[in-house]
């Protein structure tokens, strides 16, 4: 086999170029700390990286929606508690007023119930960050409006004719939507119309009508159960959202781990590889220097 000078030169050059190319590849991975810097580095891996990144972005958004939904539900729980307190107090007043010993002295009780009614009315129009809590999707207009007599007393409460029950949902996980508001009617006009029962109690107390007081009081009592039930349901949803959030958080960590394991470079391994390739380059440089040197010319006198 004839070995010519060009062959030796080409061989040396392509060995050095090859070593440099492989070294550059490692240096790029070290500089970015990523194993995949473009899809062709690992087509299947880059597909996974895109999938995991998208899944993470979606989970982040789910988490924010969960937080917002919970915030609104917590804001709803507070007036519900207060409404329950109002009703419990009204029941006590009703029980007190139904006693015959109070005959003739029920005016003060009627006045108290009237105060409680005002409180219930204002809780019915409770707001959170400019949104009415019990208005369904009609959060810009007050859900309840009162008709008052000459003395300023509430004689009737009417709900927004556009409805107070429309659901507002939040998407909190893939394909999972959770209702984040309560229907106004389920609180105020379910089996018992709370406003009407307080109005009836007040009027019965004012009219000293014992039978009416007793029946109104029992209606208020049923009202307490109605509100407590909604309140319990709200608590359940809040806890469910907690569970969803922690599951999302786990998924988030898992996807980040998966992405990292596919895309990120193993730095320690890279350094070892870098060392090896640097040595390879040095070896090909040294070999080249020696292969190119000797010639018959050196020995001809």
């Amino acid at each position: 086999m004839r070995i010519t000078n060009n062959m030796i030169a080409d061989q040396v050059l392509s060995a050095i170029m090859g070593s440099r190319n492989r070294l550059t590849k490692i240096q790029e991975q070290l500089a970015t700390t990523k194993r995949i810097n473009r899809p062709s580095d690992d087509p299947v891996g880059s597909n996974l990286v895109l999938q995991f990144s998208a899944a993470k972005a979606a989970l982040d958004a789910f988490q924010r929606a969960t937080d917002a939904g919970q915030e609104f539900l917590r804001a709803t729980a507070t007036p519900l508690d207060q409404i329950a307190e109002v009703l419990v107090r009204a029941k006590e007043v009703g029980l007190q007023g139904s006693s015959d010993t109070m005959q003739g002295a029920r005016g003060a009780l009627a006045a108290e119930v009237n105060q409680l009614l005002e409180e219930l009315f204002s809780q019915g129009n409770a707001r959170f960050a400019d949104r009415y809590l019990f208005g369904g999707t009609q959060t810009a207009a007050a859900p309840f409006s009162a008709t008052r007599d000459a003395a300023g007393q509430i004689t009737a409460v009417t709900a927004n004719p556009l409805g107070t029950d429309a659901a507002v949902e939040a998407a909190v996980a893939d394909g999972v939507r959770v209702r984040t508001n309560v229907a106004g009617s389920s609180v105020f006009s379910g089996t018992v119309n709370l406003f009407n029962s307080l109005i009836a109690l007040r009027d019965a107390l004012a009219a000293e009508d014992t039978a009416a007081i007793v029946s109104a009081t029992s209606a208020v009592d049923r009202g307490v159960a109605q509100v407590t039930e909604v309140s319990g349901a709200v608590g359940t949803i809040i806890r469910r959202l907690d569970a969803i959030r922690s599951r999302n958080q786990k998924d988030l960590t898992r996807f980040e781990y998966l992405r990292s394991s596919v895309q990120d470079a193993d730095i320690a391994e890279l350094y070892v590889e870098l060392q090896k390739r640097e040595q390879a380059l040095e070896a090909s440089l040294a070999a080249g220097a020696r292969a190119l040197q000797p010639s018959l010319l050196d020995f001809l006198a």
């Binding site: 899809p39 924010r64 929606a65």
Partner: peptide, 24 residues
Amino acid sequence: EPSDTGLQADMDRLFASLQDLASY
């Protein structure tokens, strides 16, 4: 791709902002 400024990231951000719109 893969990048924080590619189409994928843009779509992710659009959907995240819509998710915020659903909340507010």
